[in-house]
Every structure is written in C-alpha cells, then in structure tokens.
C-alpha cells in the first residue's frame, strides 16, 4: 500500500534517512522502533509530507502510495493528507469545543447538513473510545479534557475525515499507563478498518499491537519483519541488542 524506495532525507547537510526501502501492507499495524534520533519519526513524517513544512529539508527517492509517487510535483498534498491522517506525540486539540475539533476536517470540504455532522462526530468519538467521556461536554473546550481524552479526541478528529492510513507519532508517550492502554486497545479494534503506522519507544506496545515491526538505527532500516520474528528471533545482532535493552 505504501512503499518507500531508496528514500534519503537531509536536514541541511545532515543525512537523517539513509536510503529506506520499506513496504507497508494494507490493514496491518506497522510499528517503527529504534533509539531517539534514529529517524523513525522523520520517516513517518515523509509519508504525509509533513517534512515539507521544515525549511532546508531535501528528500530524494520515492514514496509510492497506491502506486503513485507522492513526491511527484503534481501531487495534491492536501488530498494526500486527507487520505493519510496523522496523530502527534503531544495531544494537540484546537482551542475550540470538542465538537468543533472533530468536525474541523469535514468542514474544510464545505458545508454539510447538521445531522450528518452529528452522526459522524458520534461514530468517530465512539471509534476513538472517548464518546462516553465527552458526550455531555461536546460544546466544552477540548483543552479542558485530560491528556488521554485529548489524545483520543485528536484520533477521533482524524477518523472523522475517513483516511485510509493513520500515522501515529508516539501517540501514548505523553500519557499515563491507563490512558495508553485505552488507546492501544482502540487501535487494535480499528485495525481492520485502517492501515496504521505507529512510532513507539515502548517495546511492549510494539509487540502487543503491531503485525510488523521495523527497527531503525542511525537513519537506516536495520530489520523489518513480522513482529513475532523481530521480538523472538531477530536476524540482526543490533536488533536483538536493542530489544533486550543493551542500548537505546
């Protein structure tokens, strides 16, 4: 579904990604693991072209999404980002009401009948497992929610625009274990509807929810395989060392 081919990325002169070849399958959760600064978040952000926002970034190579190169100059980035949603490390709801947060992406497209919006808000919040927490506070500011609730509202906001792929950049690292657990369960539930790629520092999280795991080190993809294989019987020594906590 998504395929990166010999992807290099430079911040100025510093090479942050050194030729990544990776294929992501539809309907799977792919976990990206590796020590801080290894390029996993950078790689994730190349997939919806969020790195375009940073000055002095040069990217070579291809990223194919449904067999189209998204780095083709003719690519409609706005359309691309509607198809490939993103959840960030820090919960980042807009300083609006919960309801307005969820419908934000939909309203960009133009006006829709109120009933339709209401319905999408409800299903999105239900899918994000936060409906019960916020159903009475839809018109309250999203900033008044707890961190875990905010993050799930942010996920609902992404679900509302019905993307095909969801990129998650350490979505639980700023949250407490209970909230993290809720989000993990929710992601697991959503697996059959969406293709997901999750960056995580939490090894247990990767092993619990992902189908495949990619191990990054120093801007290179060291190993990419079924999660079970990576955690139980990695072929690379570096992978084994990282997973067993010898470095990173």
């Amino acid at each position: 579904m998504i395929e990166s081919r010999d992807l290099h990325l430079f911040y100025g002169k510093k090479e942050a990604l050194k030729g990544i070849n990776l294929t992501i399958n539809k309907g799977e959760i792919t976990a990206l693991i590796g020590p801080s600064g290894c390029g996993k978040s950078t790689f994730l952000r190349t997939l919806n072209r969020m790195n375009d926002l940073i000055p002095n970034v040069t990217i070579t190579g291809n990223v194919l999404y449904n067999n189209e190169n998204i780095y083709n100059p003719q690519t409609d980035i706005v359309e691309l980002r509607k198809k490939i949603g993103m959840v960030f490390q820090q919960p980042n709801p807009f300083p609006f009401s919960v309801y307005e947060n969820v419908v934000y992406g939909l309203k960009l497209e133009g006006k829709r009948p109120k009933e339709e919006l209401d319905e999408i808000v409800e299903t999105s919040l239900k899918d994000a497992a936060v409906w019960d927490d916020v159903k009475d506070k839809l018109d309250k500011s999203a900033l008044a929610l707890s961190g875990g609730q905010q993050q799930r509202v942010c996920i609902a906001r992404v679900l509302a625009v019905k993307p095909e792929v969801i990129l998650l950049d350490e979505p639980t690292s700023a949250l407490d274990p209970v909230s993290s657990g809720k989000i993990e369960n929710m992601l697991f539930e959503l697996k059959h509807q969406y293709t997901m790629i999750i960056v995580t520092h939490n090894m247990q999280q990767a092993s619990r929810i992902s189908d495949r795991t990619a191990f990054f080190l120093d801007g290179k993809l060291i190993e990419f395989d079924k999660t079970k294989k990576i955690f139980l019987n990695p072929s690379e020594k570096k992978t084994e060392e990282y997973i067993s906590g010898k470095f990173g």
Binding site: L53, V78, G85, N92, P95, Y104, C154, V158, V161
Partner: peptide, 18 residues
Amino acid sequence: VPRHYREASLALGATRWQ
C-alpha cells in the same frame, strides 16, 4: 500560536490559507 495547531490542521488536509 503554538506550531502544533498549524501542524494538526495541515495534517487534516487543510490548505495553508484555511
């Protein structure tokens, strides 16, 4: 205005003007 508001909006498929 924090950068992450802009990022969240762009990642949802908003144009810069939106």
